[in-house]
Structures are given as C-alpha cells and as structure tokens.
Amino acid sequence: MNIFRFAGDMTHLISILILLLKIYATKSCAGISLKTQELYALVFLTRYLDLFTDYVSLYNSVMKIVFIASSLAIVWCMRRHPLVRRSYDKDLDTFRHQYVVLACFVLALVLHERFTFQEVFWAFSIYLEAVAILPQLVLLQRSGNVDNLTGQYVLFLGAYRGLYIINWIYRYFTEDHFARWIACVSGLIQTALYADFFYYYYLSRIKQDTIMRL
C-alpha cells in the first residue's frame, strides 16, 4: 500500500469522524443529507460482500467493518435519535435518490467484470459511490450558509477521491498491475463532481466574504 492510498483512506475516515463528531457534539444533523448517508451505507454494504469470502489484510477487513458500522450509525442517528432527527432538513433534502439507485443497478447489470452476485453488486457499489454525494451537494447549495463542520466533511471526502486518483497513477508506474477500469472511470467522474462543486461553491463563498468585508 502506498502513501497516497493510505492518506486517501485516512481522509475518508476523518470525513466520517467529522460527521459523527458534529452529530454527537451538537445533537444536530442540520445541513447533512440523509439520502447521501443512506446511499453510502448501501455502497459499503454491497461492496464489502466479500468481507467473509476474500481476505486481503487485517487493515482492509477492519476498515471495511468501520465503514459499514459508521455509515449505519449515522443513518440510525438521523432517522431514530430523538434529538438529532428533529434537526434534519427534510424539505431541503429533495434529491430523487431512488432513480439514481435504479440507474446504477441497471448499469451494473450491463457493465460488470463477471456476471456473478458479488461482481454485479461490486460494480453497483462503485457506480453508486460516484453519485452518492449529489443529494449532499444539492442540499448544500439550497441551504446557502453551511456550518464549518459540514463544509469540512465534503472537503475531506473530496481530498479522499483526489488522493485515490494519485494512488492509481502511482500504482500504474510502480507496480505490474493497474487498477480496475470500472473503479477508475467511476472514480474520475466522482472526483470531477467534487472539483466542479468546490470550484463554484468556494468561489462564491470567497466572493461573498469579499462583499461582506466591503
């Protein structure tokens, strides 16, 4: 495992910890999209079907369990926790995620490496992860002013995707293997979504700050 992959995993982990910290400390999930969180839970559950069949390393297995458990915990808090659920911006979180799930599943049925249960769901999880952030980005844009923690959550997720791309480039030149094309193409699309969002979101915030200062 190279340093870029490890740094990518750590920024991914930090983004989830930021979210858990925000929910725990403020007892609020304002500005967080439940739909994005449910999509991530679905992503981890369908991708890590190999948890008990294919062992890679202790690191991988532990991280898989951490990702599944933390994403389920966040969804549980936002749906069931008596205090947290009250702060959920239901009216702003309107992205039609069910169509995205359906589209990704159809795509996985068509584009996969082998037509087996695990491989189809693995491809589905890769496609779904690429677009899972969309409800969150829509919510951020609609709600306007966002607290720092929510902004940092998206920032760290974006960093994770960027580092994974550097990891693939590094692996391509240093190993006899190259990363799977389904993951690479989906990863590039996903990173482009973040880049586009950061470009317009932070640009508009910098403009706003400048106007405020004037």
Binding site: H177, A179, R180
Partner: peptide
C-alpha cells in the same frame, strides 16, 4: 504486460 489488480482497495 500489466494485469489488473485484485480488489485490494476500499
């Protein structure tokens, strides 16, 4: 020639 990796990423 290069071969695809096993699924060793998260």
């Amino acid at each position: 020639h290069k071969e695809e990796t096993t699924k060793d990423e998260l």
